[in-house]
């Protein structure tokens, strides 16, 4: 199994970021881990990398409820970038509101919708499936 070069988490809650980092370390299947505090920050940075030609993360976990830009704002802009690589995006949220569920469907991500909390087991499964 190939090691994933870079995993990205877009999340404003530092505890979630901490847990993700810890779990990733435990799995030992990911090389690099980056996190951004909101959608805007993530978009700006990733766009910058893309324009410079730097490698982009292969796997992105995206929270929905965030300040500045929420997950949907990020997604609507991010998919406009003419990306060549296949980037896997998972929604990681504690929201079950119908609006969010329907938006998930709209982006075709209904199979990649993870209800918090993220556990070690869930993460392991995801990494194995890639």
């Amino acid at each position: 199994m190939n090691k994933i070069e870079c995993v990205c988490l877009i999340e404003d809650d530092p505890i979630v970021v901490l847990l993700m980092r810890k779990f990733l370390e435990k799995t030992g299947k990911a090389g690099q881990f980056v996190s951004y505090q909101n959608g805007k920050e993530a978009y700006d940075n990733l766009k910058d990398k893309f324009e410079k030609g730097d490698p982009l993360p292969e796997l992105i976990f995206l929270d929905i409820n965030m300040p500045v830009w929420d997950g949907w704002n990020f997604l609507s802009e991010f998919i406009k970038l003419p990306l060549q690589e296949n980037i896997i995006i998972y929604i990681l949220t504690s929201s079950t509101s119908p609006e969010d569920l329907s938006l998930t469907k709209k982006y075709g991500l209904q199979d990649r919708y993870i209800l918090k909390p993220m556990s070690f087991e869930k993460l392991n499964k995801i990494l194995n499936s890639i």
């Binding site: 809650d13 505890i15 979630v16 847990l19 810890k22 779990f23 409820n65 949220t93 504690s94 929201s95 079950t96 509101s97 209800l115 918090k116 909390p117 993220m118 556990s119 070690f120």
Partner: peptide, 21 residues
């Protein structure tokens, strides 16, 4: 109710995660 349930869930989820770690 959605916000409440979301926020509550975030916090309990965090706690659960922390206990796991």
């Amino acid at each position: 109710t959605h916000i409440v349930s979301h926020n509550l869930r975030s916090h309990t989820a965090n706690m659960e995660g922390l206990f796991e770690i």
